[in-house]
């Protein structure tokens, strides 16, 4: 059974123009799937449809094989954790500690266990020193770390990240990516990440590309990310490695492993040695 299965989904905000057009895709159990596309392509709308913040017009959304409906939504939301791009809309607690506790309370975690969990996750996201601070006074990036800790502490079966790390510094982004990867492995968590980060896409198992409300590509990162002209047409950008490979090709040096920096560097070394 697939954690997320979307079939022929349609949605419009104003009943005239569909922003999600006949979208179908599957997110496999335990996979790290990335969803990419230009701004306004419908990615975030899909995330909101999956957790029932928006109501679909046509099609179906199956979570662990169960159709999302008014009856099923409560149970389904227990399985899914979502982190949005802007942390300002996600705070409830008066302190960072209270805020992380809020989700755990809703999941009926024993109060005796709660402190340990909160401290663990605050440490993982680098916010231990701030447990007694007010969330509203934190910087944008710190707020986002707290929001991420709050969601991850509940260990959802399915984690949806809607550009959750776009406000973090490169190091912070790496910390969070590592933590997510670790949970992904340890708990076999299924991840659907909406992102503009090409590096993250290259490391995912599967990538889905949206363009003007439709799914236009669906495959492994190496399949999807290798064609620079096509990515530009889709208002995206190719990884630096692919761009470099194309320039090398023009100079008569063909490289095979164009989507991966390490592979490409090794390949170039071989060429250097064989000279």
């Amino acid at each position: 059974m697939n954690p997320i299965e979307i079939k022929n989904l349609n949605f419009s905000y104003d009943q005239t123009q569909d922003v999600v057009k006949d979208v179908s895709f599957v997110v496999k159990k335990g996979s790290y799937t990335t969803l990419i596309g230009h701004n306004g392509s419908g990615k975030s709308t899909i995330a909101k449809l999956i957790i029932g913040l928006l109501e679909k017009e046509k099609g179906s959304i199956l979570i662990d094989g169960e159709e999302l409906s008014l009856e099923s939504i409560e149970g389904i939301r227990r399985k899914i954790g979502i982190v949005f791009q802007n942390p300002d809309n996600q705070f409830i607690g008066a302190t960072v500690r209270d805020d992380i506790a809020f989700g755990l309370e809703n999941h009926q975690v024993e109060p005796s266990e709660m402190d340990v969990i909160i401290e663990n996750y605050a440490r993982e996201v680098g916010m231990s020193e701030y447990l007694d601070h007010e969330p509203t006074r934190l910087s944008g990036g710190q707020k986002q770390r707290v929001a991420i800790a709050g969601i991850l502490s509940m260990k959802p079966d399915i984690l949806i990240l809607d550009e959750a790390t776009s406000m973090l510094d490169p190091e912070g982004k790496e910390d969070i990516n590592k933590l997510v990867k670790q949970l992904h492995k340890e708990n076999n968590m299924t991840i659907l990440s909406i992102t503009h980060d090409v590096e993250e896409v290259l490391k995912s198992d599967h990538v889905i590309v949206m363009y003007e409300g439709r799914i236009v590509k669906d495959g492994t990162p190496s399949e999807v990310m290798k064609n620079e002209e096509e990515l530009i047409r889709l208002k995206l950008a190719a990884p630096y490695s692919v761009r470099l490979a194309n320039e090398l090709k023009k100079l008569g040096i063909p490289v095979k492993q164009a989507w991966d920096m390490e592979g490409m560097v090794d390949e170039l070394c071989q060429l250097l040695l064989n000279k």
Binding site: G37, H38, N39, Q85, G140, E163, S166, M167, H196, V198, I232, K235, L236, A237
Partner: peptide
């Protein structure tokens, strides 16, 4: 303050 956070690559460019 972070004018390109969350923009697609071409939008950011």
């Amino acid at each position: 303050d972070e004018p390109t956070a969350g923009l697609d690559p071409q939008g950011a460019k």
